[in-house]
Computed example of a mutant assay.
Amino acid sequence: MSVTQALPKTARLRTLGMSAEIAARLRTMIQEGELPPGVRIDEKAFCEAFDVSKTPLREALKVLVAEGLVLHRQYIGYRVAPLDLDELRATFETLHGLEAHAGELAAQRLSDAAVTKIERRHQAMIDAHDAGRRTDYFRINQEIHQLIIDGAGNAVLAGIYAMLMSKVHRARGAANADMLRWQESHTEHEEIIAALREPGRPRLADVLRRHSENTAKEVLRVVEQTLAEPAARAAGGARR
């Protein structure tokens, strides 16, 4: 009998609940850019920060390894997984089409109640923007996009969209750290709201696609720059 099997059920549930909580916190830190790509995860430091033993922390890290957010190497430990530029490009190309198609469907199917809810979240996003709360702004930004996708009334499309967005979420967070893009995104969301309010919403699909393309351009620029920096440092060191 293993040690885990010998534990009372309540103890096992508490341990599993704790590891799930830690995984959720680390996932958010990775997706919001607090833990950037390639950074080493110091187990001792995180155990102290979360006030836990290594067991629930490692269980949480195993979940993130399975999700592709964290890499593990024996004798080296855990690191945040790097971003894959080619995969990002391909994912964004697919997302552009999904955004446009969702816009076409939402133009016909989005209810007045759904538009009102989107407008309320848009106002909350403006408040976050004006207060300089970047993390809140980015989170609400994502909620608005998901509300429009859900309003398209196609569960298959919504599922595919959510899955693909999980692949680019942390890369989008890095790009939104750029204040210029933050302002541009804010302006583009104003245009999305205007398109939602128009009778028949004829511009919605085009506005959503253009916003997606602009976001992709900036995200890929930031990621390319990030990936190029270590190579440039290594080349500079070799010349010395």
Rank of each mutant, 00 (worst) to 15 (best):
R120D: 09
A231T: 12
D206F: 10
T94F: 11
R172C: 14
H129F: 13
A113Y: 07
K167I: 07
R133I: 03
H186D: 09
D206I: 03
D206A: 14
D150Y: 04
R133T: 01
V115G: 02
A195R: 00
A90Y: 09
N176C: 06
S185I: 02
P230L: 14
A107L: 09
S185E: 05
R121P: 00
E43A: 12
A155V: 15
V70Q: 01
E224V: 06
A106W: 03
A175K: 00
R201Q: 05
F46W: 08
E229Y: 03
L71M: 00
A66W: 05
E93W: 10
H129P: 05
V3A: 15
A20Y: 05
A23G: 06
L95S: 02
A81C: 12
G200M: 06
Q31Y: 04
L69I: 08
D51G: 03
E34T: 03
S2L: 13
V70R: 05
A113W: 04
R221Q: 09
Q183M: 14
S53P: 04
L7Y: 11
S185P: 00
E67S: 09
A152P: 03
T10G: 11
L7G: 05
L16N: 07
A24R: 07
G132V: 01
M29D: 01
G77I: 12
Q108G: 07
F138V: 04
T91F: 07
D206L: 13
E143W: 12
N141G: 09
I76T: 12
R12K: 12
R79E: 15
A106K: 05
F46V: 02
T4K: 15
H186S: 06
G153R: 05
Y75S: 08
D86C: 08
F46N: 02
I144F: 11
N154K: 06
A90P: 05
E213R: 08
H101M: 07
E43Q: 14
A23F: 04
Q74C: 04
D42E: 10
P36D: 10
